[in-house]
Amino acid sequence: MNWIQQTGRHTLERVAVTGRAGLMLFGALFAAPSLKNIPLTVRQLYVVGVQSLAIIIVSGLFIGMVMALQGYTILTDYGAEGSLGPMVALSLLRELGPVVTALLFAGRAGSALTAEIGLMKATEQLSSLEMMAVDPLRRVVAPRFWAGMIAMPMLALIFSAVGILGGHLVGVDWLGVDAGSYWSIMQATVDWDKDVINGVIKSLVFALVVTWIAIFKGYDSIPTSEGISQATTQTVVFSSLAVLGLDFVLTALMFGIE
């Protein structure tokens, strides 16, 4: 009988956590918007966006270069080096851009968000805001949430563009694929709505999930050093799993059914 009771208790706890996370998201989304929030959001855009630029650009460049190298060796067997452009571009725009950006974002910015909010809680800064009659959801959570939502699609676009340039660097400048065919076959194959816009939609969904998990884990963390380190780890693990799982669902919805 004991395990039934435990299952029940576990389920109730899960439901309660989901409820708290939902309430927090609701609070952050609909916290009375004010002009004071815009500079705060810009500041967070710097923290989560600009400070993630370096890792995004370097990763995008190398992933594009590696794909060109791998793709070239395979395609050249069939005499189809001309298809290198679309191969690199489609993989980046549809999958790697949004997914790798989201994973890097979870590791770089998500963990930092969790740790920051967790520490603000541990050092009583959140309580202190409440006692100063300032809603921490509006002052602390909302700007970070919106900054994440804005920054991630931007980073994903930059990632894909840099990757395509990296593919050009290796494929065209180094391995000698014809530059004209690299671009023109890419242009003939890549579709604006189906590939570019769907990639942006994917990264918006990932942005929502990763930022939400990161902020909630910080907000709901146990305010001790152990609790915060645990919350930070959970942010990276949960958001990576959520991104990969959701990516399959989104891909099935977008590309699976014609």
């Binding site: 810009v42 500041r43 855009l45 710097y46 966006g49 600009v50 630029l53 571009a89 725009l93 920054a151 931007m154 676009l157 930059i158 894909s160 563009a161 840099v162 395509i164 340039l165 671009w183 890419m186 242009q187 003939a188 890549v190 579709d191 604006w192 590939d195 570019v196």
Partner: peptide, 28 residues
């Protein structure tokens, strides 16, 4: 604060550049 805003501006410009590259050169 000036530096922060400047860098966010650079970030936005880079995104626009990436967007244009994708729009004009990749997806045509």
């Amino acid at each position: 604060r000036y530096k922060t805003e400047l860098m966010v501006g650079v970030f936005v410009l880079m995104t626009i550049a990436a967007f244009l590259l994708l729009a004009l050169k990749v997806a045509n």
